[in-house]
Design a protein around this nucleic acid. Structure first.
Length: 273
DNA sequence: GTCCATGTTCTTTA
DNA sequence: CTAAAGAACATGGA
């Protein structure tokens, strides 16, 4: 589910509800979603206040008032939503944080983490910056920076852009959409792209992501933002999951191939080899 | 029953 | 050794 635009939307919707509230109770219903295994997460965070909530790649980074830090990754089906305590607890709810009301309001809230497939989880970092082998943020990367990184790998551009060490935050949807916008065939070797193509790709990645953020992400099945609302950008996908349908630019039928074990959709006319 | 799914990480292969 | 490809993880829907 969640790539950069979805994760950014979750952070944006959660921030006003979480920042400044202290954590009154922690209900960790499945301790195997916490890494490292064996730490006492409830003991570490009960009574603390979240002082900042940020995104790095697809991670949601929580900073606490004692300087400790952890992040949540939503994996494929993870959801992080604000609920009132009386809301029904749905299946696969693994963590509930009860948040004290702000001084002026009397509404207690809960932050709930739900993740059926459990590819997501919570990573405790303590006071150290999280171990970070991720590439640069796509919204601020320069064309030169991306070009340098792509030059180092002889893989199809699709695979390279999916690799979080090359560039952080992109996944299957937004790589396909960006490559289509840039007119680049997904099988093109990353190290063979011309500077003009990388420049165009950089621009397209940014415009696709920004547009997706404005539409609050893509909801295919599981994704909801922090307030429980679905995204709308799936209605504007131009290639993702549109195989067999006409290209919105040229009417050629969108083709589907498998790359890196993932389905990859592209327009054979707009994206020539 | 089968296949597929927004992601990451470990293992195997070249 | 390294880079790249493939399998594995767990659940649910079509």
């Amino acid at each position: 589910m969640p790539e950069l635009p979805e994760v950014q939307t979750v952070v944006d919707t959660l921030s006003p509800r979480i920042l400044g509230r202290s954590i009154a109770r922690v209900d960790l219903r499945r301790s195997d979603i916490v890494d490292p295994a064996g730490i006492d997460l409830p003991q570490l965070i009960t009574g603390r206040t979240v002082t900042s909530l940020t995104r790095r790649g697809k991670r949601i980074v929580f900073t606490l008032d004692d300087g400790n830090l952890f992040y949540i990754h939503l994996g494929m089906t993870g959801r992080l939503t604000i609920e009132t305590p009386d809301a029904a607890i749905r299946k696969h709810t693994h963590l509930i944080l009860s948040l004290n009301p702000e001084p002026r309001t009397l509404t207690p809230l809960e932050l709930r983490f739900v993740d059926p497939r459990r590819f997501g989880g919570i990573w405790w970092c303590g006071k150290d910056a999280p171990k970070d082998t991720m590439g640069p943020e796509p919204l601020t990367i320069t064309a030169n920076e991306l070009a340098t990184r792509l030059k180092k790998t002889h893989r199809p551009i699709k695979n390279a852009l999916m690799d979080q060490r090359v560039i952080a935050g992109l996944g299957n949807i937004y790589v396909d959409e960006s490559l289509h916008a840039a007119g680049i065939h997904p099988l093109t070797f990353a190290d063979r792209l011309k500077p003009a193509q990388v420049a165009r790709l950089t621009k397209c990645i940014k415009s696709v992501l920004n547009k997706a953020i404005r539409h609050r992400g893509s909801t295919l099945r599981d994704y909801l933002d922090g307030e429980g609302k679905a995204g709308q950008f799936q209605k504007l996908h131009r290639v993702y999951a549109r195989d067999g349908e006409p290209c919105l630019n040229c009417s050629t039928l969108i083709k589907r191939i498998v790359l890196g074990g993932r389905s990859t959709c592209f327009c054979p006319t707009c994206q020539r080899r």
